[in-house]
Simulated scan of single mutants.
Amino acid sequence: MIKIFRTIDGHIHQLNEASEGCWVVLANPTATEILETANKYHIDQDDLRAPLDEEERSRIEVEDNYTLILVDIPVIEERNEKDWFGTVPLGIIISEDMIFTVCLEETPVLDAFMDGRVRNFFTYKKTRFILQILYRNASMYLHYLRILDKKSEVMEQKLHGSPKNQEIIELLEMQKSLVYFTTSLRVNEVVLEKLLKVESIKKYPEDTDLLEDVITENKQAIEMAHVYTGILNSMMDTFSSVISNNVNGVMKFLTTITIVMAIPTMVFSAYGMNLNLSGIPFSVSHDGFLIVILISLALSLVVALICSKKDLF
């Protein structure tokens, strides 16, 4: 899908044809759309396809008539029938006349620009536009990290109950999301550092503060990801300890029950032996069976009381 936008009289408008100062959006483009864009605007097809590969690394490449910036952006993806987080590449291509963005899917990072919800946004101010995209990207990381933090608090509450397999799977998915975020934020930081040195992208004094904000926001996201990863690792260790402790408690209870039940079993086994009746206590008594039952129950009760005092139940 291809969309074309341009700032006219301070407002963003969608157009049918691209012209100087336009922003061309390619969201999960088809092979035909990539070929037509490459031929029309003299862009290498490989550079247009690069952001469509989920494993593509973040980088900056300077060509003769354009510059390619590849960064990782956060996305929501469904895993195990629940919404979790991952990352996909976003390509930003800056030519002399226009700016192009290429992504495997539509993303909230760019939706705010399309809807005109970003202040001081102009499609023809390419350097500022790049920095605004990168700032929005870092802000989305922070937003999703806060959501993960809230989910971890809910998981912590569940730890006080009886942990189940579902909680373990959710913790694993949270760890995966944090690993994706941490890795992507680190490579994005390298891209930001290189962006300061690329001469093909003009630097304007009025954008200096914005660039500093982008770097600061990205570093803050990295620190938050590290903190939440540490918290989640501690939670996983606690989870394992709770599960192990619960298993130990169950095993202790079952062992105690086995000991208590072994008393009547031993008594009944003795009375079940093929011996002379005269040698077996209470064998000639009319209430012998009831007496043996009561003695077995009494012995079991004494053993149960002893185990209870030693906190074995």
Rank of each mutant, 00 (worst) to 15 (best):
D287E: 15
G230Q: 14
V179W: 00
V284S: 15
V179A: 07
K125A: 05
W84H: 06
L68R: 03
V260P: 08
S139N: 13
V292Y: 05
T32R: 10
I280P: 07
D83Q: 15
T67P: 03
I259K: 06
A112P: 05
D46L: 10
L142H: 03
S241G: 14
P108H: 08
Y180I: 12
L110D: 14
T265C: 11
N276A: 15
N165I: 11
T258M: 09
D111Y: 05
E156W: 01
R117N: 15
R6L: 06
I169W: 05
K158M: 15
E78F: 05
H11T: 13
D47P: 03
I201A: 00
A18P: 13
R6N: 14
G288A: 07
F289M: 11
F129C: 10
M273I: 12
D46V: 11
F282I: 02
V292L: 11
E106A: 10
A298C: 14
A262M: 08
W23V: 13
K126D: 08
Q220I: 09
C103V: 05
I60L: 12
N274Q: 03
N248K: 00
S200I: 06
G21P: 14
A112S: 13
I73D: 09
F313L: 15
T127P: 00
V303N: 01
I93W: 02
T238F: 12
T238Q: 06
Y141P: 09
N188A: 04
V102C: 09
N165K: 04
K125D: 05
E223C: 03
L254Q: 06
K40L: 14
I306Y: 10
I291D: 01
V260W: 04
L52D: 08
I43W: 00
V179S: 06
K176T: 04
D149P: 00
G161N: 04
T101I: 01
E36I: 12
I34N: 01
K309E: 03
N188I: 02
L294H: 00
I133N: 08
N137G: 13
T30H: 04
L297W: 06
L305R: 08
T127I: 02
E106P: 01
P74C: 07
Y204E: 07
K125E: 13
M251I: 07
D9H: 07
S283V: 09
P163Y: 01
I73W: 06
I295P: 07
Y271T: 03
L305M: 13
E206Q: 09
M251L: 15
V302T: 10
D83F: 03
N80P: 00
A27E: 15
K252E: 04
M1P: 11
L26S: 07
V198Y: 00
L178G: 11
G86M: 03
N16C: 00
N165S: 12
L277H: 10
E55C: 01
D213A: 11
L275P: 07
T265F: 10
Q166G: 00
F121C: 13
I291F: 10
F122G: 00
S241H: 05
N274Y: 09
E212P: 04
M98R: 14
T258G: 15
E217M: 06
K197N: 02
I222W: 02
G21L: 01
L185Y: 04
